[in-house]
Protein backbone atom coordinates (compact mmCIF):
# COMPACT_ATOMS: atom_id res chain seq x y z
CA UNK A 1 0.00 0.00 0.00
CA UNK A 2 2.79 2.42 0.88
CA UNK A 3 4.95 1.25 -2.03
CA UNK A 4 4.37 -0.74 -5.20
CA UNK A 5 2.91 -4.21 -4.82
CA UNK A 6 5.72 -6.70 -5.58
CA UNK A 7 3.65 -9.34 -7.38
CA UNK A 8 3.96 -9.22 -11.17
CA UNK A 9 0.56 -10.88 -11.54
CA UNK A 10 -1.22 -8.23 -9.47
CA UNK A 11 0.53 -5.42 -11.36
CA UNK A 12 -0.25 -6.69 -14.85
CA UNK A 13 -3.83 -7.61 -13.97
CA UNK A 14 -4.35 -4.11 -12.54
CA UNK A 15 -2.89 -2.57 -15.71
CA UNK A 16 -5.49 -4.58 -17.63
CA UNK A 17 -8.46 -4.02 -15.29
CA UNK A 18 -8.15 -0.35 -14.31
CA UNK A 19 -8.74 1.09 -17.82
CA UNK A 20 -11.63 -1.34 -18.30
CA UNK A 21 -13.19 -0.22 -15.01
CA UNK A 22 -12.81 3.43 -15.99
CA UNK A 23 -14.36 2.78 -19.40
CA UNK A 24 -17.27 1.01 -17.69
CA UNK A 25 -17.64 3.92 -15.26
CA UNK A 26 -17.97 6.36 -18.17
CA UNK A 27 -20.48 4.02 -19.84
CA UNK A 28 -22.57 3.81 -16.66
CA UNK A 29 -22.41 7.59 -16.22
CA UNK A 30 -23.43 8.58 -19.75
CA UNK A 31 -25.96 5.80 -20.38
CA UNK A 32 -27.62 6.19 -16.99
CA UNK A 33 -30.49 7.91 -18.79
CA UNK A 34 -31.15 4.81 -20.92
CA UNK A 35 -30.57 2.02 -18.42
CA UNK A 36 -29.67 1.35 -14.81
CA UNK A 37 -26.82 3.41 -13.43
CA UNK A 38 -26.18 7.11 -13.36
CA UNK A 39 -23.90 9.60 -11.71
CA UNK A 40 -23.66 7.99 -8.28
CA UNK A 41 -22.73 4.49 -9.47
CA UNK A 42 -20.47 5.77 -12.24
CA UNK A 43 -18.61 7.98 -9.76
CA UNK A 44 -18.11 5.12 -7.31
CA UNK A 45 -16.80 2.79 -10.04
CA UNK A 46 -14.36 5.51 -11.13
CA UNK A 47 -13.28 5.99 -7.50
CA UNK A 48 -12.71 2.24 -7.06
CA UNK A 49 -10.50 2.14 -10.17
CA UNK A 50 -8.43 5.04 -8.77
CA UNK A 51 -8.25 3.37 -5.32
CA UNK A 52 -7.02 0.15 -6.94
CA UNK A 53 -4.39 2.22 -8.75
CA UNK A 54 -2.80 3.63 -5.62
CA UNK A 55 -3.24 0.47 -3.58
CA UNK A 56 -1.29 -1.49 -6.20
CA UNK A 57 1.25 1.04 -7.49
CA UNK A 58 1.66 3.17 -4.36
CA UNK A 59 1.02 6.89 -4.01
CA UNK A 60 4.58 7.87 -5.03
CA UNK A 61 4.48 6.21 -8.46
CA UNK A 62 3.48 8.32 -11.51
CA UNK A 63 -0.01 6.77 -11.49
CA UNK A 64 -0.35 7.40 -7.75
CA UNK A 65 0.64 11.06 -8.13
CA UNK A 66 -2.15 11.41 -10.67
CA UNK A 67 -4.60 10.00 -8.09
CA UNK A 68 -3.30 12.41 -5.43
CA UNK A 69 -3.87 15.31 -7.83
CA UNK A 70 -7.53 14.27 -8.12
CA UNK A 71 -7.98 15.38 -4.49
CA UNK A 72 -7.69 19.01 -5.63
CA UNK A 73 -11.08 18.50 -7.26
CA UNK A 74 -12.88 18.28 -3.91
CA UNK A 75 -16.06 20.31 -4.25
CA UNK A 76 -15.90 20.68 -8.03
CA UNK A 77 -18.79 18.26 -8.45
CA UNK A 78 -20.92 20.24 -6.04
CA UNK A 79 -20.07 23.44 -7.94
CA UNK A 80 -21.17 21.81 -11.20
CA UNK A 81 -24.49 20.72 -9.63
CA UNK A 82 -25.25 24.06 -7.98
CA UNK A 83 -23.94 25.87 -11.07
CA UNK A 84 -26.48 24.18 -13.32
CA UNK A 85 -29.17 25.22 -10.83
CA UNK A 86 -27.81 28.75 -10.80
CA UNK A 87 -27.81 28.93 -14.61
CA UNK A 88 -31.51 28.07 -14.56
CA UNK A 89 -31.97 30.81 -11.96
CA UNK A 90 -30.09 33.38 -14.07
CA UNK A 91 -32.14 32.53 -17.14
CA UNK A 92 -35.31 33.50 -15.33
CA UNK A 93 -36.67 30.23 -13.97
CA UNK A 94 -36.66 28.45 -10.63
CA UNK A 95 -33.56 26.93 -9.10
CA UNK A 96 -32.86 23.55 -10.74
CA UNK A 97 -35.76 23.88 -13.17
CA UNK A 98 -33.87 22.68 -16.23
CA UNK A 99 -36.54 23.90 -18.65
CA UNK A 100 -34.96 27.35 -18.25
CA UNK A 101 -31.43 26.19 -19.05
CA UNK A 102 -30.39 28.60 -21.81
CA UNK A 103 -28.94 26.39 -24.54
CA UNK A 104 -29.82 27.74 -28.01
CA UNK A 105 -31.63 25.46 -30.40
CA UNK A 106 -33.15 23.12 -27.85
CA UNK A 107 -36.75 22.76 -26.75
CA UNK A 108 -37.79 22.19 -23.13
CA UNK A 109 -37.55 18.34 -22.99
CA UNK A 110 -34.09 18.39 -24.60
CA UNK A 111 -33.00 21.06 -22.10
CA UNK A 112 -34.21 18.84 -19.26
CA UNK A 113 -32.22 15.98 -20.80
CA UNK A 114 -29.08 18.15 -20.83
CA UNK A 115 -29.76 19.29 -17.26
CA UNK A 116 -30.04 15.71 -16.02
CA UNK A 117 -26.81 14.77 -17.82
CA UNK A 118 -24.84 17.75 -16.43
CA UNK A 119 -26.02 17.27 -12.85
CA UNK A 120 -25.21 13.56 -13.10
CA UNK A 121 -21.65 14.48 -14.11
CA UNK A 122 -21.55 16.75 -11.04
CA UNK A 123 -22.71 13.95 -8.72
CA UNK A 124 -20.18 11.54 -10.27
CA UNK A 125 -17.25 13.93 -9.75
CA UNK A 126 -18.31 14.66 -6.16
CA UNK A 127 -18.76 10.99 -5.21
CA UNK A 128 -15.53 9.89 -6.90
CA UNK A 129 -13.37 12.55 -5.23
CA UNK A 130 -14.98 11.89 -1.83
CA UNK A 131 -14.42 8.14 -2.06
CA UNK A 132 -10.76 8.54 -3.05
CA UNK A 133 -10.21 11.17 -0.35
CA UNK A 134 -11.69 8.99 2.44
CA UNK A 135 -9.61 5.95 1.47
CA UNK A 136 -6.39 8.00 1.12
CA UNK A 137 -6.88 9.65 4.52
CA UNK A 138 -7.63 6.24 6.10
CA UNK A 139 -4.62 4.58 4.50
CA UNK A 140 -2.10 7.35 5.18
CA UNK A 141 -3.31 9.00 8.37
CA UNK A 142 -0.62 7.51 10.65
CA UNK A 143 2.37 8.62 8.54
CA UNK A 144 3.75 12.10 8.11
CA UNK A 145 3.05 13.41 4.64
CA UNK A 146 5.25 11.04 2.63
CA UNK A 147 3.77 12.05 -0.69
CA UNK A 148 3.87 15.56 -2.07
CA UNK A 149 0.75 16.63 -3.87
Amino acid sequence: MKQMHDSFLVQSMSRLLIPLAQLFALYVLFFGQYGPGGGFVGGVIWAISMILTFLVFGLNSPQGRLVAKVLHGDGVGLIIFVGVGGLCLIAGGEFLNYANLEIPGLDAPARRYMGILLTQIGVAVDVAVTGISIVISLAYHDTEQEYDV
Binding site: G32, Q33, Y34, G35, P36, G38, P109, A110, R112, Y113, I116, Q120
Partner: peptide
Protein backbone atom coordinates in the same frame (compact mmCIF):
# COMPACT_ATOMS: atom_id res chain seq x y z
CA UNK B 1 -37.36 14.90 -20.11
CA UNK B 2 -36.63 12.61 -23.11
CA UNK B 3 -35.07 10.22 -20.57
CA UNK B 4 -36.18 6.56 -20.92
CA UNK B 5 -34.88 5.61 -17.45
CA UNK B 6 -37.62 6.82 -15.11
CA UNK B 7 -35.37 6.44 -12.07
CA UNK B 8 -32.85 8.88 -13.50
CA UNK B 9 -35.49 11.46 -14.39
Amino acid sequence: TLTPNVVAS
